[in-house]
Each structure stands twice: as C-alpha cells, then as structure tokens.
Design a binder for these strands. Structure first.
Length: 864
DNA sequence: TCGTTGCATGTCTTT
DNA sequence: AAGACATGCAACGAA
C-alpha cells in the first residue's frame, strides 16, 4: 500500500500492521480495512466509495441489480455477503433473515429500511467529495449519531440499563427518550412506521398479553439497521463504512466493530472462487436449502448470538411456516432442550442474548406474557420473565410444559423461534433429535433429518454447519439425544461435563484421518544421523531430534494397475510421479526428483494431462473417504502401536502381516510424538530401525523389552482365556469369576501404583510398563491445554485403551455381564460405532479421574 | 404431601 | 475471570 496514512480525513491513522483483511476481491486478495475507522483500501487505493468498480462486484447477488459506485449516492446501500460479493442492503438484509420473500423492487426497500445507514455513507461520500444525498448534511448526521447512541442504550441488555431499581414507568420513560423525531427529521419518513419508541410502555402496561406483533413492531428496526456493523457485532458490515465518521470521537469503538466483524467472518465459509452466485441460484436450491441462519442482529443484545443458537431451517420450512409467500419468516434462534427445559417444571431457559435480542424488554422480574404460535397454528401464551442471577439475568419462558408435551419434545430436541413478518408473530418450531444427527457427515455438512421437516412433511435438507459448532452443539445434542433415545438415565454430570469433550463422530473420524495423514508425513529429522541400535533382533534408529513432517504426497492407481505416488514441486507446483515407497522431505522440488531424470527440472512438463492428474487427485481423496465410509469401525478401533504390533507379531507370527500396516515401522507413528519431547515414546526412532545389544540397559531397551514382554504375556493370556471361555458354561463362568477376582485382587495389590491401561496388563503380569504411561506424560497432560498435539495425544488414549479392552474384555465377559469395563467398552464400541470417544469421556465413562489418574473403579472391579 | 416459585450454586463457555 | 446456563433446593402455598 503506497499511502502511509488513512485517507479518511477524519481518521488519518497510520497504516500499520493493524490493518485488517476486509472483503474478498474478485480479482483475488482482500481489501484492507483501516483498523480505527474501517475505511477500505483495495490495492492501496482508498475505495470507500468506488471499491465496487475496483473489486469487480457489479451486481447485487441477491436481486441481480447492477451496482456501481453511484449506488451509494442514489440511496443504494451495499452489504458484504457471507458467501462473497455484495448485495443491496435491503436484499442482503432480507437474505440475512432468510426471507422467503423475494425482493422485487430496490428503491422501496432501501428507502424504508436503510435511510439511517445511508447517512453514514453520505458522510463518507462527503468526505471524499462524492455526490451526497441532498437531504442529508453533517449536522443531521451528528444528530443522528446521538439518537443512535441513545437508542443503543435501549438496545443494550436490560441489565445495563439500570432498570433494577427503576419503576416500570421510569424505565419506560427512559426508553422513550430516543427521539424518533430526530431521526426522522430530515430523513425518509418511511422510516417512521418502523419506529415505535413508546410502544413498550403502553403495551406493557395496558395489554395483559402482549401480542408478538406488537413486540415486533416495537423493535426499533432502523436503529437495528444502524447497528449493523456497529457495536452489535454484526458480521455483516455495511459498505462503504466509516464509523470513524459516525463516531469520530471514539475511533477505537469502530475498531472493535471491525474486530468483531472480522472475527465473525472467520467462521463463515469463504466466498466461492467461482465468482458471485446469482440470486436465482441462491433461491433455486443449488446451494443447500437448509442452512444455518445467522440470526438477524436486532434487539438489545449487544453480544452477537452464539452459533449454537443460530437457527437451522430450510427454505421450505420457512415457506411452510409463513403459510403464504407474502410472509417473511425470520428465524431467530433455536435451543436444544435441556432436561430442565423439557422437565415437568415447565420452564424453558432462554439464552440471554436471544431473549434480549428478540423478545420484548422486561424490566421487572415477573416479565410479561408472550404469545407464540406453534407450527400447527396453535397459539400458546408463555410467561417471559427473568430471574436475577449474580449480577445478570436468567431469562425463562414459563408454562411451556403443555406446548412441549403437545410437540412431544424431550431433552435433546430442539425448539426454534422464528418471526413472521409482517406482523411479527412469533412462531415456535421444533426439531426432534434423531439418529441422523449423529450421522451427520464430517465437517458438519450432509443430510440432516430435520424434525421440523418431518413434522411439516417436508423433505430433508442439507445442513451446513461450521465444524466449530458441530463440536460443541452437535456433540452435546448427540449426547443428550442418545441418552434420550436410549432411554438411559441422564445424569447431570454426563450431560454437562461431556458437552465439550464429545466429538462429533464423523469429526472424530476426520481427525483420525488427519492424524493418520500426519503420521504418514513423519520423517526422521534432517541432517541428524541416527545411531543404530538393536533390541531383541530389531534394529532401531535413535535420533537426538524429534521427527519432522515430510512432504505430503498422494497415491493413485495406474490404469494398468499398480500403485503410484505423486508429489507436487514446491517451486513450480507441477506434479511428479515417484516410486511408491519413497518419503519426501518437507520441501521438495523437481530438482530433487532423482527418480525421473526427464522431469528433474521445473521446466519439464507434467507427465500427464491436468485431467488425468485431477482424476488421480480425486482418486486419492476418494480413497481416503472410502477408507472411512467403508469401515468406520476400523477408524474407531485403534491400531496397535508399533510395540503392540511387535508383540502381536511375536505372538501371532506372520499372521500379523494381515493386520495391514502394522510393522516395525509403525513404531515411528506413535501418536505421542511431540516435537522436542524426550519421553520414551518420542525418542523412539522414526524408522523403527536400530540395533542395541541384547545386554543394553538403556532406557529404550529396558522399556521396549519390558513392554514387549508385557504385551506377549497379555496376548497369551488373552488367547488362553478365549479358549477357556469357549469351553465354559455360564455357571462355570460364574464360579471362575470368583476365582479370578481373588487372583486379580492379588495382582492388583502388587500393581497398586499403576495408573494406565498398561498397568492393567501389569495387574495381570506384575510387570511395569513404562512405555504405556511415562510419568512425564502425566505432567504433560495436566500442564497443557488442549492444543492440537495434546489433543492428538489424548485422542489416542482410548485407542490404546482398546488394547486394554481387548485384553480385559474377555475377562469381563467371564465375570460381569454388565457394568464391567469390558462390556461397557464393547457395548460402547458396538452401540456408538459412529462415535469416537475423547479420552476424557472415555476416562469418565470408566470412572477414571484424570488428575490423579486413579484407576477406574469399574476396571478394578472387573479385575477382581 | 405435592407442586410451584424464586433463588443459589456449580459447571461450562467465552472473553 | 467473568458470564451464561443447568439444575438443585428451600420456602411457600394449595390440595
């Protein structure tokens, strides 16, 4: 950027690294936004007013109308759309609300809804000497700003309005202070019908049961519009936008606005590289019809709603709800019913932000009655109220039991709140928790059996949801739903504690794949020569440095059959064919292609056509997908660690080769590898090769020997137990159970200090397995947050536990039909095929406390 | 005794 | 650390 100073005259901020990435440009790259004032720069050009031309966005993606810089001067307002491009403000707004109503005309909408915002633009234009609407001047703008702020007080959470001690009348009186007259003066009169500043008081006091229509009408829409891009944190900021102009004295305020905007945008899908999508595309279902609707930013909630409350609803459902196409359904929010919500107590806890944003303001604890219509058209009256909670409020809908019951909802189901415009009638939909929720394909994309759809007799739609949300909400929903479906007793702890520990099944699969991919990329550290050691006739390379990640390659199949490997040059990005078994360093270029002298330079053309290459790439992706889809259970089941594989190989002989990739080399893929870590696991050589003398007493050798022995004993024991098991009848099993209880009791006593699954074997063998549970890992686990490495690490724990599971499951089956760890795990594995357990959940499920690494009581019992 | 109400508290999430 | 939320529980009133 050539300019060193923001060209916004009211800003003048120096251009620093603080400048943030703005909207995507069609030409590639992003506009830059001045942090303090939000002015936009594209390619170094101040573009608050003509960025459209510069960026190439020339039409409203929603209505298709041509946009140009003059749009601003001619009362057009522009808004950056989540999916890329820009739209008329009105269209964007409607789209944002996921209106089923198609905007027919431009000017009308603008004149009604956006006049207030226009002034910003007008001011901005004035700054730049562009055409400005005649009827707006800066003084009026200044006038506007004050009401905006004043009104924003109205929009603030009620608790921030200091209504605690104020009488209702007083409070209402305060609310009326926002002078619509001021706003309206000099601006489009069309704004006024949307503004009913004093209505709340009247409604509150005079109408026993507040009609939601009134509620909605009471919402000061123009102000809300103004708050778009403002402190409310709406990710959809307006363009051109120069809040330094709006609030020139507090440029930092704007700064935070853009911060919020940017932050919010991060979780949104990137705009298509294919350019803008036309409105028709949007509405014809080319994109999934069901979507996560970012709710409208309105009301008094300053905090943008959490994604978990974003309504998921299909256009079809919206249409169904609206009844006629003239209506506009505005999905507001949704909530997964908790046990309390669905219980007999009849109180539905409302998310505070949602309550304050979409429901009428209440100043007194008793609140007010709220009429909400269900999808059958039946109207319910709930008491919308709040409880003081700490220094905050807790909003509830009381009297929801009949409604909940009529909908046959239970914990885990979801209720959705929408609004029908015009009229502002609140509509309550619902979505039953179904198994399909747990089968949502990874990445949050895929079919979602929407119970509201079911209810409405509609076809399923696709639900697209950010992965972040999936982890949280989906998992939570899944758990609750599972419990609900299974009719299991739902405990508070499980429900709440597991909320953030559960991982959506498919996400877990994806994570596993990612992990596997990462493992595949592990390479010995460069420029570090290993020392070769041999342990039990196995060669090991020992490195002083942790492994590094190598270059990613793809594998394909030749038309003639046979595997091939492809890698992309880091310099020219051309793909080169490689031998199937080579491992590449992190950086690899054509010049490193020692296998094909004709293509060892970037100047050499690619061996195959782009189409063929595409097929290969696709093949690689499909292969990966198929790996999961065809055998998700495989993904659930842990691979044996390298040492396990060693032990297995020792026990099973060559049969272990059937296991697949399990080999000595797998040793290098231990999930606990951490850069810089020198634990026993991490210092194992990446290649698995190396020789130690049989008399070597180094830590590695001792550990490997010990673990090797442990595993062999475990394997043997397992085998013998299986044989024995097959010969026993139930009665004999019971008798034997008691015997083993005694025996294991003794073993357990010897291994009383043991903590991990490795010690399960120890409990059996009396051996100590350092490799299973290096002490330092305890520290690591406790000291670290959930960073990725940690996550990888902990995610692997249940995998290793599976070894234990296999080892003790047979024991369990002999001893306890239910309630034992083995059966518990097995049933988990069977029942929750689609779900991977996080280590926390796993540990919790077996009564294992992480901090102390207490031996799970169930396990202990099972071994007795 | 049971149900309701209002608040308190613990846990979880977000900042 | 603060805030939000789920739920426990005591107080109260009605049956």
């Amino acid at each position: 950027m050539e300019s060193k100073i923001c060209m916004n005259s009211s800003c003048g901020a120096a251009i620093t690294h603080e400048w943030t990435k703005g909207w995507p440009l069609r030409s590639g790259g992003y506009a830059l936004l001045c942090y303090p004032c939000g002015s936009a720069y594209e390619d170094g050009v101040f573009c608050n007013t003509f960025h459209l031309e510069e960026s190439g966005w020339r039409e409203c993606r929603l209505c298709g109308n041509h946009l140009h810089c003059g749009c601003i001067a001619s009362n057009y307002l522009l808004e950056i759309l989540d999916f890329g491009g820009v739209g008329c403000f009105s269209c964007a707004k409607s789209s944002q609300l996921h209106s089923v109503k198609r905007i027919q005309t431009h000017g009308d909408e603008i004149s009604e809804g956006a006049g207030a915002v226009l002034t910003n633009n007008a001011r901005s234009n004035a700054t730049e000497g562009e055409a400005v609407s005649d009827h707006v001047d800066e003084r009026k703008l200044a006038q506007l700003c004050k009401p905006m702020e004043a009104n924003e007080c109205n929009l603030l959470p009620q608790t921030q309005r200091g209504d605690g001690n104020a009488s209702l009348g007083q409070h209402r009186g305060e609310e009326v202070i926002c002078p619509v007259e001021k706003v309206g003066a000099g601006f489009s009169n069309a704004m006024q019908p949307n503004v009913r500043p004093a209505n709340f008081a009247k409604i509150d006091n005079a109408i026993p049961a507040l009609d939601v229509r009134d509620i909605h009408d009471s919402l000061p829409q123009p102000y809300l519009s103004m708050s778009v891009g403002g402190p409310s944190g709406n990710p959809n900021f307006l363009l051109p936008f120069s809040s330094g102009l709006v609030d020139g004295k507090e440029p930092r305020k704007t700064w935070s606005t853009f911060q919020q905007g940017q932050q919010s945008r991060r979780i949104l899908p990137k705009p298509s590289k294919n350019g803008p999508t036309t409105s028709s595309e949007l509405n014809k279902g080319i994109i999934p019809q069901t979507r996560i609707t970012r709710p409208p930013v309105e009301g008094r909630g300053k905090n943008h709603l959490l994604p978990r409350y974003w309504p998921r609803i299909t256009d079809q459902e919206l249409q169904k709800l609206s009844g006629d196409l003239k209506s506009t359904i505005v999905p507001l929010f949704e909530k997964v019913l908790s046990a309390s919500d669905a219980g007999r107590i009849g109180r539905l806890v409302l998310p505070k932000a949602c309550a304050e944003a979409y429901f009428p303001p209440i100043s007194q604890s008793e609140g007010l009655p709220l009429r909400i219509q269900d999808v059958n058209g039946k109207e319910w009256t709930f008491q919308f109220r709040f409880w003081p909670n700490n220094n905050s409020r807790m909003y509830v809908l009381e009297g929801v039991t009949p409604c909940i019951q009529s909908m046959q909802l239970r914990a885990g189901d979801t209720v959705t709140f929408s609004r029908i415009d015009p009229g502002g009638k609140l509509v309550m939909g619902f979505r039953k928790a179904t198994d399909s929720d747990t089968q949502t394909p990874k990445g949050g994309k895929g079919l979602h059996v929407n119970a509201l759809s079911e209810h409405l007799g509609l076809s399923n739609g696709n639900v697209s949801r950010g992965r972040d949300e999936n982890h949280g909400d989906g998992a939570n929903g899944n758990l609750v739903q599972q419990l609900a479906v299974n009719g299991e007793k739902r405990t508070r702890n499980i429900g709440s504690k597991s909320k953030r520990l559960l991982m959506h099944s498919v996400d877990a699969l994806e994570l596993r794949l990612t992990w596997e991919e990462a493992q595949d990329l592990l390479r010995p550290p460069p420029s570090v020569r290993p020392s070769i050691v041999t342990i039990e006739d196995h060669e090991f390379e020992e490195y002083d440095e942790p492994p590094v990640f190598g270059k990613r390659t793809i594998f394909g199949t030749r038309p003639s059959g046979g595997q091939e490997q492809w890698a992309q040059c880091d310099d020219c990005s051309k793909w080169r064919r490689l031998p199937i078994d080579v491992l590449l360093p992190p950086k690899w270029t054509c010049s490193d292609n020692v296998w094909d002298s004709s293509r060892c330079a970037c100047s050499a053309p690619e061996e195959i056509s782009p189409k063929e290459l595409e097929n290969i790439l696709k093949m690689g992706t499909d292969l990966k997908k198929a790996k999961v889809l065809e055998n998700p259970k495989l993904a659930l089941e842990p691979e044996p660690s390298g040492l396990d594989a060693l032990a297995s190989a020792a026990v099973l002989g060559d049969k272990m080769s059937d296991v697949g990739e399990s080999s000595v080399a797998v040793t290098t893929k231990h999930p606990r590898h951490r850069p810089g870590c020198t634990c026993i696991v991490c210092i194992q050589p990446p290649s698995g090769k190396g020789k130690h003398k049989s008399t070597c007493t180094c830590n590695v050798c001792l550990t490997v020997k010990r673990r090797f022995k442990t595993l062999m004993l475990r394997k043997k024991k397992r085998q013998s137990e299986r044989e024995a098991e097959s010969q026993k009848d139930n009665k004999k099993q019971m008798e034997e159970t008691e015997v083993k209880h005694t025996r294991n009791d003794h073993s357990e006593h010897e291994a009383s200090q043991s903590r991990t699954e490795g010690e399960v074997a120890e409990a059996i063998t009396g051996e100590i397995d350092l490799n299973c549970h290096p002490k330092r890992e305890d520290v690591q686990l406790e000291g670290e947050g959930l960073n990725m490495m940690n996550f990888f690490e902990v995610a692997r724990v249940p995998v290793e536990n599976h070894i234990m599971q296999n080892g003790i499951a047979s024991l369990k089956s002999e001893q306890h039909q239910e309630g034992s760890l083995g059966s518990h795990l097995q049933s988990k594995a069977n029942r929750e095929n689609e779900r991977l357990l996080s280590d926390e959940e796993f540990l919790a499920s077996v009564g294992w406390e992480r901090e102390g690494h207490e031996e799970p009581s169930s396990e202990r019992n099972g071994l007795q």
